[in-house]
Amino acid sequence: MHDHHDHDLTFQADHDTGPASPYEVLEHAIRELLVEKGVLTNAEISEHIDKMATRNETLGAKVTARAWTDPEFKQRYLNDTRAALASMDIDIGDMAEYRVVENTPRIHNVIICTLCSCYPKLLLGYPPSWYKSVTYRSRTVREPRAVLQEFGVELPDGVEVRVHDSTADLRYIVLPMQPEETTDWPAEKLMAKISRDSLIGTSIPT
């Protein structure tokens, strides 16, 4: 019997094909040791993975909406991000410092990491795959306006583009401009205007 499947059309690579890399073997060994020694349980590891995987831009939108509606908070968010986030019960921990870059009528900010994929995970969740792509990382430093246009961002004349390459120990997040017609909106309603991409700089809230 002819057993034909259209593998060419439907093929999807298995996540765990091929032999484990040396780092995967190392991770496996350390994890097993930690569990065996009673430092961590498998349930705790699994819970942490779930916690990170279910994180999204909700926190980022929440702090941005607060900055739009509370000028005093906005100043703190821009000048001492760690303290501002702590005041909203968001602990950025000891992994990296956070910095906020503010869009103005003269400056549009966009975030990248040319060396790898540094990203404000705590506030936005895991980065989208395009953020980690070689294309986004290399083109955004070289031709940011062309990349922004492909994302649908049309910048008026006279607006300067400022690209931030997070090469080190700091994580950047954009504070977009609040759309004019939303001036009197409450923070909860504003959150719907704030997308993940607008906090990376590849979109503008409208």
Partner: peptide, 29 residues
Amino acid sequence: NLYKIRFKQTDLWLDYTGSPNDELEVDVY
């Protein structure tokens, strides 16, 4: 010490086509 260093895009890329005011900021040790 870690610094935020600002570069003019037109200094970095000879064929840069955006505004001469466009900038790139990189954290450098």
